[in-house]
Design a protein around this nucleic acid. Structure first.
Lengths: 339, 339
DNA sequence: CTGTTAGCGCATTCAT
DNA sequence: ATGAATGCGCTAACAG
């Protein structure tokens, strides 16, 4: 006895009006007499009626669904983004159709629901998807990703990765580091690569030795593995994790497994300023990209009509000083081989 | 020039067949000649066609949308749940319509999309919503929440909170604690309350002094505040956070602000086994509720037809020993006033 | 195997 | 101000 959803016809019957009247009663700014509207509202309330937005969308050719795709939802920064974004969407009367890109699902499945736009929080942006969106008139918003190829267009929201990488490098240099590493994981996401590249360029210019760790996924565990290998031999006195998750893995492993005193004998710096990074247990110095600015820019992009020209917004980044990096101008950190 | 979505009619025209043929080509197990199917697939590919599931749903009276509501998505355990659940849904061809209950949106809005069922990860379950679901034939799945009132029915998935609370209590007793506190926040969620109640009952039976902290939201910061107050005066030698987030706030504040040596002078135990709790920086001993079991049970509930009778699944919990609690049978922890 | 037809629930134009 | 009729894109029952 699978109960059917209650429809406008049911309400009309009960209120003794036509279906059109019901429709009008639920359409803002439509012409209905106050008396009728009241009767209809009551009938709807009694029956538990809600207008079927699937059908409404079908008619209006305009959906309130926004596809949000993100892999790695446990990543603290991604989940913070999702939290802010989903709240913002609702506030504007939009609904969030979530797709976990790590879940093996088909990204294009979002188009099946006629989403008005697709927001890519993380994960790769397959050209195929970009093409499909363009083909179907769905706006595409890419966060922290490079521009899609050729003529296809998309809104781009990105933090100034290069500036962030440079900031991190200069801070480590100011801390007196002379032999550093950048942990970037095997992910080829342009945001991560750009951070690492800018970091290395700056280090090279300053004549500081550096090595790159480019294995594993972007995860806490990758940071741990990197630290185990990089710190097995003495020498390294500063590490930049291109993501807070990576940096936290490095930080914790350095302290608890490798016996390093952070920041005295090793400086660690991250990128994102995820909530956990501020916890007293970590005190991670990091590069912050403003979550609220990022969310605001994303919402704006989503709300712009599909006809408007795509823009790219570049968000500034700032250094957040906590206590995982030696003070500026301090003597060079204690080198293990010096002790 | 807002481009319209491409429809089956477009494909039919291009492939030189009827619209039904197109429909059949995309319906598993329908009768189409191989030749036609091939031509249609090609045309669809060229045009970037995807079947409109909104329209399909309208016709079939059966949606593939599952409403998932959760507040506090940054909570590490909630986000882990969401990650597992969304991946599982996709694997079964279902889509996840996310509603952030903290975002001020209307929960009932989910019904507007004719979701086949609603999963409540966290946040309160308004009777109103339960009633609406029942009225509209949408299955309702409550996680860690008490049964809804009166005749309304819902699937219940819950960890054995009371057993967990008892486990935590016994472990603290075994550690030699004589004066403990339970930090439960002001949240009246039955899961949290049950954990705390069982803990207190067990403590009372053992003749151990205990106090309750029942202020603030369920968050890391609440744990910090609680620790600041509870540990300001000497005495307390064990704390149970009914949530890992609370426990971690307590743990970190005890160590870094209150100068406590955990686990030597203070034992801390949590509940959930969120991913961060295993990090070396915390090593939180906690009560685990198996995420995979929870997800599996949830998916089962979602997939059962709306006609099947609702069940309630109670999941076992286990103690995960890490290093935030004094060893069993150890001498009573160092009491600050004894030092 | 294929095309024609009807109807899912809605918003909207056109008559009244 | 209201009811009747139409079409959104789709699937399924029916007929050829």
């Amino acid at each position: 006895m699978t109960r059917r959803f209650v429809s406008a016809a049911d309400v009309a019957r009960r209120a003794g009006v036509s279906r059109s009247a019901v429709s009008r009663a639920f359409t803002p700014g439509a012409q209905v007499s106050e008396a009728a509207r009241k009767r209809i509202q009551e009938a709807a309330e009694d029956l538990g009626y809600r207008v079927n937005r699937l059908a409404r969308t079908l008619h209006q050719q305009r959906s309130d669904l926004v596809g949000v795709v993100g892999g790695n939802l446990v990543n603290p920064y991604i989940s913070a983004q999702l939290e802010a974004l989903s709240a913002g969407l609702q506030r504007r009367g939009l609904q969030c159709l979530l797709l976990n890109s790590g879940g093996g699902g088909d990204l294009a499945a979002l188009l099946d629901y006629r989403v008005r736009s697709v927001v890519l929080l993380s994960g790769a942006a397959p050209d195929e998807l970009v093409r499909l969106c363009a083909r179907n008139g769905a706006r595409m918003v890419l966060i922290g990703r490079p521009a899609p190829p050729e003529g296809t267009s998309a809104d781009l929201i990105l933090a100034d990765s290069a500036a962030g990488g440079r900031l991190a490098a200069r801070r480590l240099i100011a801390a007196g580091c002379r032999n550093v590493a950048v942990v970037q994981s095997a992910s080829r996401t342009s945001a991560k690569v750009d951070r690492a590249d800018a970091f290395c360029t700056e280090m090279q210019a300053a004549g500081v030795t550096f090595t790159r760790w480019a294995e594993g996924p972007n995860s806490y565990d990758t940071g741990c593995s990197a630290a185990r290998v990089l710190l097995a031999q003495p020498g390294i006195d500063g590490i930049f994790g291109v993501t807070d998750e990576l940096a936290l893995g490095v930080l914790n492993t350095a302290r608890s497994e490798m016996g390093r005193d952070v920041p005295r004998s090793l400086s660690v710096i991250g990128f994102d300023d995820a909530p956990v990074s501020a916890w007293a247990s970590h005190g991670l110095t990091t590069i912050r990209q403003s979550l609220s600015q990022l969310t605001e820019a994303t919402l704006d992009a989503v709300e712009r009509g599909p006809s408007s020209v795509p823009r790219t917004v570049r968000l500034p980044v700032t250094l957040v000083e906590r206590c995982s990096v030696s003070p500026r101008g301090a003597a060079a950190p204690l080198r293990p081989e010096a002790g």
